[in-house]
């Protein structure tokens, strides 16, 4: 089936959700992936937003953020962020989530804080230095990265976004790899995969370094390696992710009423 890279990314992300999970979908394209999973194969997937909107089924196009009123359609409950993030996420109730990133690294750490000139990153400079580009910050992603039982990273696959080490850890993945995250004692388990516009990366169970697990019908191992900023290891069993079925794509386009995923 003909589909755009973003549609493939949304479907590959949505396939990571199981029926009955309690989830936070995030905002933007990841939200379409979540609502697609609900419609496609996980009718009892339960979602809420970090702002405390529960059980909604957005209408009228892609909500631009968690404060967009379109996100409230058909909601069964409204509370607030203290409840949603401070209690339900922080105490470890959430099964699965999606987090986006400006930059990630080979251990799945997330940077949404800023981009620095090479050599001036705070971890290299040993102090806080001024960023070249100041980004919009962690938002609720840090709480989700620490508290969700697992989470999916959904990132556009570009070399500048896939760094050997992120300039700044806004939200923790597996930190410096191995057992470094486990030692932190988070209630949440860490990123289970990175789903991109080119393929799917998964963490090595021991080193926690992300390797290439699958490419898409329209991408290749070579293209993915070229667009990754570290020497990406490739699974011995690397495979093509199943092409979207007609049903999967029809369900996605029924959710993506305004065609947000068909633009890219």
């Amino acid at each position: 089936m003909e589909c755009t890279r973003q549609e493939m990314m949304a479907i590959a992300t949505g396939r990571e959700f199981s029926n009955g999970e309690l989830a936070i979908f995030g905002v933007g394209l990841s939200m379409l992936a979540g609502y697609w999973a609900q419609k496609n194969h996980a009718p009892d997937l339960v979602a809420f937003t970090e702002g405390g909107v529960f059980g909604s089924s957005p209408v009228g196009g892609l909500p631009w953020g968690i404060e967009d009123t379109r996100i409230s359609a058909n909601a069964t409950s409204f509370t607030n962020a203290i409840d949603a993030l401070g209690c339900l996420v922080a105490s470890g109730r959430v099964d699965n989530a999606v987090i986006g990133a400006a930059q990630i690294d080979k251990f799945g750490n997330v940077n949404t804080t800023g981009i620095w000139e090479e050599g001036t990153q705070p971890w290299k400079a040993g102090r806080y230095t001024l960023p070249k580009v100041r980004l919009n910050g962690s938002g609720g992603a840090n709480e989700i990265a620490c508290g969700a039982k697992k989470f999916i990273l959904m990132v556009t696959h570009e070399k500048k976004r896939f760094a050997d080490r992120v300039d700044y850890i806004s939200s923790p993945g597996y930190l410096s790899g191995g057992d470094s995250r486990a030692k932190m004692g988070f209630v949440g388990g860490g990123p289970c995969c990175v789903v991109t516009t080119l393929g799917i990366l998964r963490p090595d169970p021991v080193t926690k370094e992300f390797y290439l697990d699958a490419y898409y019908p329209f991408s290749s191992v070579e293209e993915i390696k070229e667009n990754t900023g570290w020497d990406l290891k490739v699974s011995a069993n690397v495979k093509m992710a199943p092409e979207p079925t007609a049903k999967e794509l029809a369900n996605l386009r029924a959710i993506d009423t305004t065609g947000s995923l068909r633009k890219g």
């Binding site: 309690l22 339960v46 809420f48 909107v53 529960f54 059980g55 409230s72 058909n74 909601a75 069964t76 409950s77 409204f78 509370t79």
Partner: peptide, 17 residues
Amino acid sequence: PTKTFQDNPKLTSIPHF
């Protein structure tokens, strides 16, 4: 019915999950 909650979600004390 669930619609009772959807009609006024601010009044929901406990979410179903």
